[in-house]
Design a protein around this nucleic acid. Structure first.
Length: 158
DNA sequence: GCCAACGTTGGC
DNA sequence: GCCAACGTTGGC
């Protein structure tokens, strides 16, 4: 039996990979993640069909800019084996991969991005991981009530 | 650009 | 296995 649908938030610097890039490509492997906590979430927790909020970080204005979904479960991140790639990891071997990634598919780009500044003012999002001080996790879980609050906000503005 | 918060590495 | 040094992330 399939598990219950879960929700996630993926951070990305738009100069590196933006929601427009995802819209153009349709599907992309979320490679290059080199953090064990994020890897474990992708490898062990994510299932096809899970919802993803796409967040633009380190840019003004920082915002949730769209929605994606998990379209393929975790597989070894190919960039770890490629010596010419910036994310090459000499400690990884094909028979014992160290890093994994899921594939994500574009769902929608929000007409009006939800700015970090306004998210901070929404009571239902008070405990959201994204908004906690010092949270650097680039792939993180989102609670169902947070997902609902955010989608409600999106539909109320379009 | 700054720097606090955090994760990883490596000497012991 | 501790922990200081180092590197990185990412909000501001």
């Amino acid at each position: 039996m399939a598990g219950k649908k879960r929700y996630w938030l993926f951070k990305s610097e738009p100069n590196v990979y933006s929601i427009q890039d995802l819209e153009r490509e349709g599907v992309t492997p979320w490679d290059g993640v080199r953090n064990y906590q994020a890897r474990n979430l992708m490898r062990d927790e994510m299932r096809v069909g899970d919802g993803i909020l796409f967040y633009h970080s380190r840019v003004a204005p920082m915002a949730i800019v769209g929605r994606a979904e998990v379209v393929a479960e975790a597989h070894p991140d190919p960039t770890q084996f490629d010596p010419s790639h910036p994310h090459f990891d000499p400690r990884a071997h094909p028979d014992e991969p160290r890093w994994y990634c899921v594939d994500i598919g574009f769902v929608e780009a929000f007409e009006k991005p939800l700015l970090r500044e306004e998210l901070k003012r929404i009571p239902a999002l008070e405990d959201m991981m994204l908004l906690q001080k010092g949270c650097r996790l680039s792939v993180q879980p989102v609670r169902p009530k947070e997902w609902k609050a955010i989608l409600r906000l999106v539909s109320s503005r379009s």
